[in-house]
């Protein structure tokens, strides 16, 4: 029975009832207006840093060095500040290599690990799952020093490979857990039908699970890329030579060294804006998967 039927046979309203209904409607409109005002105010508040960053990146030297800081450029707009991007291009390239490898192989190896846990039975599944999940609790600080020592022995210190080599060995317990949760919810009929048709595990994995889990993998890939793009602790520990650094840490080194360049806030803001371009584009292009992924990630397993 559709719900609407209940309301169709309602007797005509009395004058009083009509009045109170109108009053209620007016109250709702006011409430809605208040909601919108709050929401817009919040959006302005949250977007302020970004707008300010962009605005400052377009200011000329006069505006930057004015006694009183200003919100918007007064004496002309200087797009030439963005030339700084060319100086930073080598670091961008390093970062692109790191995020590309991580963004592809972390979801892929994670997906490979999640598949048997979610869809198959095998000996030792329970204990392996428990061990994997317990690694979530382990702080990075515990393994930081020995990993560094190991990488040093392997010649990976001051080598860009240190930033992507782990992508081929798993992909983070949290990501795998997320994929397991997602895969468990998919109907088993697909696998069974394929099995009956004589498909093997690899075929099921690539031809059935892969397309069905594509969105989750996109989410994990994109959030890995965004995370690695801004990651700064890893490169700070492992990369020494400036020419080998990723953009985040190269940028940090440049502006923490301050000195002469501290007067060029506009140029540095332009650089900061350049750094945000890739995450922004990726996020907007994949917003469906991103928002969907944040939702799955937040809902407890």
């Amino acid at each position: 029975m559709p719900k609407e039927n209940i309301y169709h046979n309602v007797p005509p309203l009395s004058q009083e009832a009509l009045f109170s209904r109108r009053k209620k409607l007016a109250k709702n409109v006011v409430l809605l207006a208040v909601k919108y005002i709050v929401m817009v105010a919040l959006a302005v508040f949250l977007l302020f840093p970004y707008v300010f960053m962009v605005s400052k990146s377009l200011m000329g030297m006069v505006d930057i060095n004015a006694a009183k800081p200003m919100l918007f450029p007064k004496s002309g707009v200087y797009f030439s500040n963005y030339k700084v991007f060319l100086d930073y291009w080598p670091y961008f390239r390093n970062s692109l290599v790191v995020v590309a490898i991580n963004g592809v192989f972390i979801p892929l190896t994670g997906f490979m690990a999640a598949y048997p846990f979610a869809r198959r039975e095998f000996k030792g599944k329970k204990i392996m799952f428990a061990v994997m999940m317990s690694t979530i609790m382990l702080p990075g600080a515990v393994v930081m020093v020995p990993t560094y020592v190991m990488f040093n022995a392997l010649g990976l210190v001051d080598n860009l490979a240190s930033q992507w080599v782990t992508a081929f060995f798993g992909g983070g317990a949290m990501n795998i857990f997320l994929m397991i949760q997602f895969m468990r919810a998919l109907p088993k009929d697909f696998d069974n039908a394929a099995l009956i048709d004589g498909a093997n595990m690899v075929q099921i994995f690539f031809k059935i699970m892969f397309p069905m889990c594509f969105n989750v993998m996109v989410f994990i890939g994109i959030s890995t890329i965004i995370g690695r793009w801004s990651d700064f602790q890893g490169p700070l520990i492992y990369l020494r030579t400036l020419s080998k650094m990723t953009i985040a840490v190269a940028f940090y080194k440049q502006f923490s060294a301050s000195g002469a360049s501290s007067n060029f806030t506009n140029v540095r803001m332009a650089m900061a804006v350049c750094m945000t371009v890739l995450p922004m584009i990726l996020f907007l292009a994949f917003q469906k998967q991103m928002i969907g992924g944040v939702k799955i990630g937040g809902i407890k397993g």
């Binding site: 929401m39 919040l42 959006a43 949250l46 977007l47 840093p49 970004y50 300010f52 960053m53 400052k56 965004i226 793009w229 801004s230 700064f232 985040a248 840490v249 940028f251 940090y252 502006f255 806030t265 540095r268 803001m269 900061a272 804006v273 750094m275 945000t276 995450p279 922004m280 996020f283 907007l284 917003q287 991103m290 928002i291 944040v294």
Partner: peptide, 23 residues
């Protein structure tokens, strides 16, 4: 709005650091 609210969280921390230091 959901999109706008999420935007600041994807700005790299180093860029935010510079910005807050300035603000």
């Amino acid at each position: 709005f959901r999109l706008l609210y999420y935007m600041p969280t994807i700005i790299p921390g180093v860029a935010m650091a510079l910005l807050w230091a300035d603000v």
